[in-house]
Structure formats: C-alpha cells, structure tokens
Amino acid sequence: MEVRTIKVFTTVDNINLHTQVVDMSMTYGQQFGPTYLDGADVTKIKPHNSHEGKTFYVLPNDDTLRVEAFEYYHTTDPSFLGRYMSALNHTKKWKYPQVNGLTSIKWADNNCYLATALLTLQQIELKFNPPALQDAYYRARAGEAANFCALILAYCNKTVGELGDVRETMSYLFQHANLDSCKRVLNVVCKTCGQQQTTLKGVEAVMYMGTLSYEQFKKGVQIPCTCGKQATKYLVQQESPFVMMSAPPAQYELKHGTFTCASEYTGNYQCGHYKHITSKETLYCIDGALLTKSSEYKGPITDVFYKENSYTTTIK
C-alpha cells in the first residue's frame, strides 16, 4: 500500500517557510505537534488534498525554529505562539472599519479597549522592536488589523473576551517599542525636605499616572512627601515624541487643539466601556464603527496623549 502524501510549508514567522512532505494517514499533531492554519487549530486533523502548498504555523520545537521565533517575536515564552494563534482565530472574524481616516474595530468580545489602543497607536510616533509587531502594525494602518490585535493580546497575556485596560495595554506595548531616546527629568520640591531631581528613561519617561493635564504637570502637581507634608512635583525636561497622561476616570474637559487623542471610560472596574476622542479640525468621538463630532467635550476621561518633541522648564 502506497503512502499518500502532500507537500506543505511549516513556519513560526510566515517569513521562513520549511518544506514538509506530510503523510495523509496521520494527523498534523502526530507529525508536527500543535499546528495552526489561519489561526485555526488543526492539530487533530489529517492532511487533505486542499492543504497542498498551504502554510501551517507550528510551535518552535527545534533550534532553527526557536531562533526564527525569537528573532521575529522577541520572546522565548513557549506558550506565546499558541496564544497568538488562538487569538487570531477570533480577531480574523472582527470587522476593521476605516473611521475618520483611522483603522478602528467594530465592537465584539469586549474589544473596546483594543480599538482605543489601536486608534491611539496610529496617532503617536512609535516604532516597535519585534519585527512581528512592526509588520502587523503597518498592515493594521492599511486596514488589516487582525494579526496586530492578536499579537497585542498575546504580548499582554490576554484572551479574547476578557476586559482590558488601555493604560495597561499601552504599557505592555511600550515595553516592546523603541523608547531608548526618551528621557524625563522631574523635580520634587518640599518646604521641609528641599528639592530632589529624578531622571527617568524609556517607558517611565512617557507615562504618568495622577493627572490628565500635561500643562498642569509642567506647572506642578501636589504629591505627598515622605515627611508627610505636601510637596510639588513638576516637569523639568521632556525628550520624547509623545507623552501619555493618565488618571482614574473623572469628568474632564478636553479643549480642541490642546491634545492629540484621549480615552474615555464609562462604567466601573468590573464592567465598563471605552471610547476614543481625537482632536482634528474639530473633536471626534470614535466608538467602534461609530463616529460623532463636537466642538467641545466633557466626560469621564482616563488617558490623554500629547505630541511632544523637546521641553525644558522655565521655572527657576
């Protein structure tokens, strides 16, 4: 009895394709271990004539594949690729409408935090270190965002349907971005203890939790000093293409032309909904596939993004 075979390709990165001759009487799992086709788990399936010449994702289970996976995804987590594939199996079914010149995501599976993050990423200057993220990001900007969303979920250790947080998501993504040249110098002034300067680099240099107003941050924000008295913390120097200011959701007025974009969060910790506000020729609110415009805006804002380049204080 002759062994019926077909020729397929296996890959971990969709760049390096490895030619395989597979036995049609055995499952993919018996031949390769966990195997995925377009995100779908085909591990328990036997090869079919229609699979001839198709590319299958496999887990990096030998040295060659491990090197290829690390170079593309910059992670050695053995569960990463499987999590990416199972997320992709959902995100490829989502709709990605162009809204006001940006790629958004039609609401499904509690994905409003991903839509808000995706919209924000198209408006701030950011370059990702893992080629996987950078490639998928370019495709997302062009309207094909399924891979990018699935990668975000995998890097953030999230599953489809789980509630997510924009600030946490951005923080994970910033860790995989090139923020080497970003720098922030802060000064804390206390009447009792004097003053202390701190220099922050990388992710810490672009994120701040405690106030939404970048102007206020430049002037000074009140913080408790270690001595128990009130101290003032203010920005001395900022070198970065953008800054992200966050605070627990509270009524906040966004003035046209003073910011790049913002995240609105309605609801409580267990259950809520994100919308995205962007400042173009007027203010726009993007909620999944829905767009509304207004000249002014007041609502429960939790993150505001500002364009920056270089700032030095005039406070002496």
Rank of each mutant, 00 (worst) to 15 (best):
E2L: 11
P97S: 15
Y57C: 09
Q134W: 02
T292H: 08
D62S: 14
Y234E: 04
G82Q: 15
T199I: 11
L153V: 07
A108S: 09
A205P: 06
F56Y: 09
M245I: 02
N157T: 03
K229C: 05
D23G: 11
Y269R: 15
Y284M: 10
A142I: 13
Y284I: 14
T76P: 14
Q238W: 02
Q30W: 15
Y311V: 08
V21W: 14
L102W: 00
S294I: 15
N14K: 08
W107C: 01
Y297C: 07
T5H: 11
F148N: 01
T103S: 06
E308R: 04
R167T: 08
K191G: 10
Y138G: 12
N110T: 01
T211E: 13
L235K: 01
Y297L: 00
K255L: 11
V188F: 08
I301Q: 00
G210N: 00
G53Y: 11
T120W: 04
Y28I: 05
E264Y: 09
W94L: 05
E296Q: 12
V160P: 07
Y72C: 09
N178E: 10
V42K: 04
N111P: 09
R139C: 10
W94H: 01
Y311D: 13
E281G: 07
L114M: 09
Y306D: 05
K293C: 11
A154I: 01
Q230H: 06
Q123C: 07
I301W: 01
M244Q: 00
R4C: 14
N14Y: 04
F80Y: 01
V42Y: 13
G299E: 12
H48T: 15
G164E: 01
A140D: 05
N49P: 12
S310Y: 13
S50C: 12
W107T: 06
Y274Q: 00
S240T: 04
M85H: 15
L212I: 06
N110Y: 01
E308D: 01
A154D: 05
S240D: 02
W107E: 03
T11Q: 12
S171M: 14
K54G: 11
Y84C: 07
F217I: 12
Q31V: 06
I105K: 07
W94Y: 10
K106I: 08
K219G: 07
L291G: 11
G82A: 15
K255Y: 00
K219R: 13
P60M: 08
D165N: 15
